[in-house]
């Protein structure tokens, strides 16, 4: 197939006033088709069916570009895949990096290790967080730049530092049991930090943090269910809600690319508890009255949410730039 067939079809944004027509042109949709056919479809019973088995079925290049695999690995979202895809990803991730028995990569992302020798140099590679270790490894030429057993890590804190270019960069300081520490940077240091803490079951940043500075935390965050409306009814979706000190409430499902809920304090008119079937043990949910209509959320921590949302400062009506007519 000619490469030109793969250029993204901006032309599909039709300039007609009637309904936009979807395109099935394989030239435009091939990358999408590849993604779905390689990753979706019926999950067949593994006992009878060999799927990817032990054969790297397709050229690594193609496979690696599919379905944001990289992104999902960066975000430690392996669990979103079926066993076989995970096995395949684990193998391809660790082909150049020996793993111990039962060791699995949880997340991997571009990262650097600060080598604190006479010169002090950043050595680029990739951070691999496994269920046993944190590793900074360079693929070519292959060298493990730094590694530590998760058990040996006593704390991980983030701090900001000005890079040579003058930009503020978030770094991670990892302290080991023997008292030594090391500094690493990573593509998404904040996220890596939370993954390490989760994996290691370390507490959030300690109050006595030395050079560590943490962003001012949210007022409240935690598990929340959001009742999303579809053409035929509504569905409870699980995710996390965050309420900032400014009163902005957001809710995001781990399956979504951005928060699906975003309620500015000025948009929130009132909060009412109300009886409604929901996935928690509570009989009640919260109905958030907003200028875009009512939104229902449920939480195992409903009372605290109600309190936190209820004491939002009432603001005068502001015209929001939204255009959703409801």
């Amino acid at each position: 197939m000619a490469d030109k067939d793969l250029t993204p079809p901006r032309s599909s944004a039709v300039e007609q006033s009637s309904a936009m027509q979807p395109t099935r042109d394989p030239g435009a949709t091939l990358p999408d088709l590849l993604e779905v056919l390689l990753n979706k479809g019926v999950h067949l019973n593994l006992d009878l069916i060999i799927s990817v088995a032990d054969v790297p079925l397709i050229g690594i290049n193609l496979r690696a570009t599919i379905a944001g695999i990289e992104t999902m690995i960066e975000y430690g979202m392996m669990r979103q895949w079926d066993e076989q895809t995970r096995a395949w990803v684990q193998r391809s991730l660790t082909r150049h990096l020996p793993m111990a028995e039962g060791e699995e990569v949880v997340a991997a992302m571009a990262a650097s290790h600060y080598q604190d020798d006479f010169y002090g140099t950043w050595r680029p590679g990739r951070a691999y967080l496994t269920n046993k270790r944190l590793i900074i490894h360079r693929r070519d030429p292959a060298e493990t730049l730094w590694q530590a057993d998760l058990d040996a890590i006593t704390s991980v804190e983030s701090f900001t530092e000005s890079s040579i270019g003058g930009e503020e960069r978030l770094r991670l300081k990892v302290v080991l049991r023997d008292g030594s520490d090391t500094t690493i940077s990573a593509l998404d240091a904040k996220h890596l930090l939370s993954l390490i803490r989760k994996q290691r079951q370390l507490p959030e940043a300690s109050a006595t943090g030395t050079a560590a500075t943490e962003d001012e935390g949210p007022t409240m965050n935690g598990t929340m269910w959001y009742l999303e409306s579809f053409a035929q009814g509504a569905m409870w979706r699980g995710g996390r809600a965050t309420l900032t000190p400014e009163g902005l409430l957001t809710w995001k499902s781990p399956m979504d690319n951005r928060p699906s809920l975003r309620i500015e304090p000025s948009q929130l008119k009132a909060v009412h508890p109300e009886k409604h079937t929901n996935p928690t043990d509570y009989a009640q949910v919260l109905r958030l009255e907003t200028d875009r209509g009512d939104i229902r959320v449920a939480s195992p921590d409903l009372d605290r949410w109600q309190q936190a949302l209820g004491k939002q400062p009432e603001k005068s009506q502001e015209v929001t730039s939204g255009t959703a007519g409801e």
Binding site: R10, S12, V36, G41, V42, H43
Partner: peptide
Amino acid sequence: QIRFLGPWPPYSFVDI
């Protein structure tokens, strides 16, 4: 910029 693709069989919604 809007891409609108399909219609396809329900590839992403099989989940049996």
